[in-house]
Design a protein around this nucleic acid. Sequence first.
DNA 1: CTAATATATTCCCATATCGGAATATGTCAA
DNA 2: TTGACATATTCCGATATGGGAATATATTAG
Lengths: 109, 109
Amino acid sequence: MARAATTSDAFNAVAEPRRRDILNYIALQERSVSEIVDALELEQPSVSKHLKVLKEVGLVDVRREGRQMLYRVNAMAIRPLWEWTSTFERMWRHQLVRVKEIAEKKSGL
Amino acid sequence: MARAATTSDAFNAVAEPRRRDILNYIALQERSVSEIVDALELEQPSVSKHLKVLKEVGLVDVRREGRQMLYRVNAMAIRPLWEWTSTFERMWRHQLVRVKEIAEKKSGL
DNA sequence: CTAATATATTCCCATATCGGAATATGTCAA
DNA sequence: TTGACATATTCCGATATGGGAATATATTAG
């Protein structure tokens, strides 16, 4: 076996920075492919390919409007990532509190 | 270019499900390599390789104790993932509220 | 129908991957 | 020192990748 396909789940799809850029950009409002191309300064085929991956894992939805394809984020598909990372939230909070305590002790409080 | 290296950042490192399993397991308390091997039923070389990737991106720290290497999570390194996913939280919350409203309307409330 | 616009697909290739198997390194015990 | 235990590294091969370039498909305008 090799590395899991980028289309195997949201974790793999989102590992690619350009795909996160695309999601960030269309989060504000739905966008056509050419808007994405212009905004992110990527090649059109590249954007289409990234969108295909995002669509395959359910991270985006599309609708046609004339010749344009309008893509929008399906935020629910990002939730599993948030949930997994959230299980570690308590740990870094704890760590931040300790760092703060140490800093205060050093500064003589 | 090909796909970005698994060691290029936390997003790529964490895309591999076994590495998430490892992080989940050692989140509770630091663990030796053989404990991870036993708990997750993976081959020892495989675990060592995964740990190397995790260490390279700062997701784990290690200390030696005799012949054992004890690995622990560095939760702070997961925070960027949580922060990125959190920017979409409002969107799915909104969506969930709408789903609930529709359900209530249908059931005659 | 034809041209123009918008998007998708295909082909090519250098690259990194993960698992498996074998082996190397490091540490302790006797 | 030797052997046993714990972990790391190396070599292998099948596989999927992402960018570039070229081309195909789809829709609208004229």
